[in-house]
Design a protein around this nucleic acid. Structure first.
Lengths: 353, 353
DNA sequence: CTGAAAGCGCTTACAG
DNA sequence: CTGAAAGCGCTTACAG
C-alpha cells in the first residue's frame, strides 16, 4: 500500500535581497526600493533589479518584511462553534462563507489564516498579539451573552476585528450580518399567504442567540400583520445542527399541539425536522410546510426541496474583508446589514420547482 | 441600515521580551529561554518570567521569531480547481478535507494559510520562497498531466509539499490518496450483485484524471470478474460538478444505448445525473441504479439517498499534515493510500435505508 | 536617484 | 544558570 521513500530534496538555498543587489550591481537598499515600488528608483536601475529578481527566483522574506513594517499582511479567520461539533463537521454555511472570505482576501492582497476555536478558548489574544494577523474575522455560533465579554476584551486590547452576525445596538466592535428580522418576516408572510395558520418555530428564541431571536420576531411580526401570532407552545429550542432539528421536531410532535407549518431557524434544523416528520408519517408540504434559513446547497437537493431564506455569502465575505481592512488601516468603518431573500421550493409550496 | 462609526480603538502597545525582562528583573535572553522552554533556566527565575508574561499579556512576535529560526510554523493549503468554479462554490468534498486539515494543523501546533488558486497560477513558488509557509498541502482537481510539471518544479526547488490524490508510480513528491481502484471495484461488485449488467460511467476516464481513471478501471475489473465489462459506449466525460453530471446524463440518454445503472465518478456528478433522469421520467433505482463517489453530506439527503464510496477525510487530513511535517523536518516520509468504503443507500438498492 | 546605517524583536553560541 | 552580543532579512530616514 505504500510507495518507496522519497529522496531528500536538495537543500533550499533561498536568495536574499543582498544576492539580488550583487547580481544587479546596486545596493541592497535599492533592491528593497524596487520591490516596494518606490518611485525614487531610476527606470533602468529598476529594470536591472527586476531581471535579477526573476533570474534568482527571489521573493521578499515575509517575516523580515513584516517585522520591519510592523504588520503582517495577513488576516485570521476564527471559526468557532459551541458546543464543538463532532470531528470535521463544520456547519456548511460557514464553509460557504469561508469560500467567499478566502476569495475576498485574495482580492485584497491579504493572506488568510484559518483556525477553528472553541468558544471557551483564549482566541481573543493570540493572533493579534503575536503579530500573526493584522485583524480577525469572527464566524460562528454560540451563546452571544457569554461571547460578548470576549468581544469587549478585544476592543479593549485594540485588536481589529469584524464579526459575522446580528448587528446589535451597543455591540462591541463591528459586525456584518443578514437582516434576520426581515428574513423571518418574509417567511411569515409566505406561510400566511399559503393559508398556514399554526406555525411552529424550531430554534432558540432568546437574546442568547440574537440571529435566531430576530428570525423569530420577524416571523411573529408578519403574523401579527395578518391578525395572527406565533404560539409559544409551538416553539422548541434547537441549536443549528441536523440532530437538534430532528430532536426538536420529535418534541414538537410529542407536545401534541396542532401545527400546519414549521419555520426552522436554520436549514440543518429544517432537514432534521423533515426526517422526523417523514418517520412520523407526516407529508411535507401537504401536512406540514417546512421553511429553513441559510440556503445551503443541501436545501436544493433535499426531498422535498427546501424553501429557505438565502443570505448573500459572496457579498458578506467581501464586506467582512473590506470592513476589516478599513479598521486595520485605521479608517472609519461601520457595521452593515445585508438583505435577506426568500427562496420558495416545494417543501412549502407544491407548485414551486 | 448602518450603525454609527466605531470610535477608533486605543493604539496597541505591544509588550516585547525586553519589557518582560525589565518586569522580571532578568535579561532579555533569559526571557527568550523561558518562552522557548529551555531547560537551562532556574525554576524560580522561570516563575518570575512567566508571571510577567501573564501580567503584560505578552506573546512572542511571530515574525521576529520566524526570521531568526528560519521557519514559520505555518503550513499553506492550496486549493485549486480547473476550470475555476463560479464564485464561492468550492467542491464540498474539499471543504470537508479543509475541515480535517485545519484540525490536524491545530493538533500539530501549526498555523494554516488557506488560498484558492487556479491551476494556471504561479503558486508553485510563492508560499515557500517567501517563507510564509514551511510546506504546502495541495488539494484540487485538474488535468494531472499539466499539473505534473508544476509538481516537478516544486521538487526541484526543494519545496516541501504533499498532495491529495492518486498515488502514482514515479510521481513528483508525495501524495495521500484514496484507493480509487478498489472503490470502483466495490461499486462494480455491488451493482453486479444487484443484477445490473449495463453500467454507464459518467466521468473522465483518461490518464489526465488519474483518480477518475482508477475508479473506472476498478469498476471494470469487477465486471470482468463477473464475465462482464464496461461498455465504452456508456462512458461520458464529466468534470466534478453537478451541471457536468446533468449534461453527461443527458448525453447518455441521447445516445440511446440501453443501461440499467450509472456509476458517477463523484457525488456531484451523480446528483446532476439524477436530476436529468428525473426530468426524463426515469425512476431511480427502479429504472437505473445510481452510485456516486465521495460521500458528501448531500449524498445522504439526496432523493433518493445516494449510494456512494466514502473516503475517510478525517484520517486523510491527519495523514496529509503528519506526512508534510515529516518532510518539513527532513524526516523520511512516504505516500499512502487510504481504504475506500462502499455506503449503500436507496439510489441503488430500494431495501437500503 | 542612490548608499550606508539603524533597528524591527527575537534566538542562541559564547563566555562566564 | 545567566548576560552581552551577533545576526536573521528586511525598510526607510538621513545624507549625499
Amino acid at each position: 500500500m505504500n510507495s518507496p521513500t522519497q529522496p531528500v530534496a536538495r537543500k533550499r538555498t533561498k536568495a536574499t535581497s543582498i544576492d539580488i543587489a550583487h547580481a544587479a550591481g546596486v545596493s541592497q537598499a535599492t533592491v528593497s526600493r524596487v520591490l516596494r515600488g518606490s518611485p525614487l528608483v531610476n527606470a533602468e536601475t529598476r529594470k536591472r533589479v527586476e531581471e535579477a529578481v526573476r533570474a534568482l527566483n527571489y521573493k521578499v522574506d515575509r517575516h523580515a518584511s513584516s517585522l520591519r513594517l510592523q504588520r503582517s499582511g495577513t488576516l485570521a479567520l476564527l471559526l468557532f462553534e459551541d458546543p464543538t461539533p463532532d470531528d470535521s463537521h463544520i456547519n456548511p454555511f460557514f464553509l460557504s462563507m469561508l469560500g467567499s472570505i478566502t476569495r475576498a482576501c485574495a482580492r485584497a492582497g491579504q493572506d488568510l489564516l484559518v483556525s477553528f476555536q472553541q468558544l471557551s478558548d483564549d482566541w481573543h489574544a493570540d493572533y493579534a498579539d503575536s503579530m500573526k494577523a493584522d485583524g480577525l474575522i469572527l464566524l460562528g455560533y454560540g451563546d452571544y451573552l457569554s461571547y460578548r465579554g470576549k468581544l469587549e476584551k478585544l476592543v479593549e486590547q485594540g485588536t481589529h476585528f469584524v464579526r459575522w452576525g446580528a448587528v446589535l445596538p451597543n455591540q462591541p466592535g463591528l459586525s456584518i450580518g443578514c437582516d434576520n428580522f426581515h428574513g423571518g418576516q418574509l417567511v411569515g408572510e409566505h406561510l400566511v399567504g399559503l393559508g398556514r395558520r399554526r406555525i411552529a418555530y424550531l430554534g432558540d428564541a432568546s437574546s442568547h442567540y440574537p440571529e435566531f431571536y430576530d428570525r423569530y420576531q420577524g416571523c411573529d411580526a408578519a403574523l401579527h400583520a395578518a391578525g395572527l401570532a406565533l404560539d409559544p407552545a409551538l416553539q422548541v429550542d434547537a441549536q443549528s445542527a441536523e440532530d437538534d432539528g430532528y430532536a426538536a421536531a420529535r418534541e414538537l410532535l410529542v407536545r401534541g399541539a396542532p401545527f400546519d407549518a414549521v419555520f426552522a431557524a436554520s436549514d440543518l434544523i429544517a432537514i432534521g425536522a423533515m426526517r422526523a416528520f417523514a418517520e412520523a408519517g407526516l407529508q411535507v408540504p401537504r401536512d406540514v410546510a417546512v421553511v429553513g434559513f441559510d440556503d445551503l446547497p443541501t436545501a436544493r437537493s433535499a426531498s422535498p426541496a427546501l424553501t429557505t431564506v438565502s443570505q448573500d455569502t459572496s457579498r458578506a465575505g467581501t464586506l467582512l474583508v473590506e470592513t476589516l481592512m478599513k479598521r486595520v488601516q485605521e479608517q472609519p468603518a461601520e457595521s452593515f446589514t445585508l438583505p435577506a431573500k426568500l427562496v420558495v421550493r416545494r417543501s412549502s409550496d407544491p407548485d414551486a420547482r
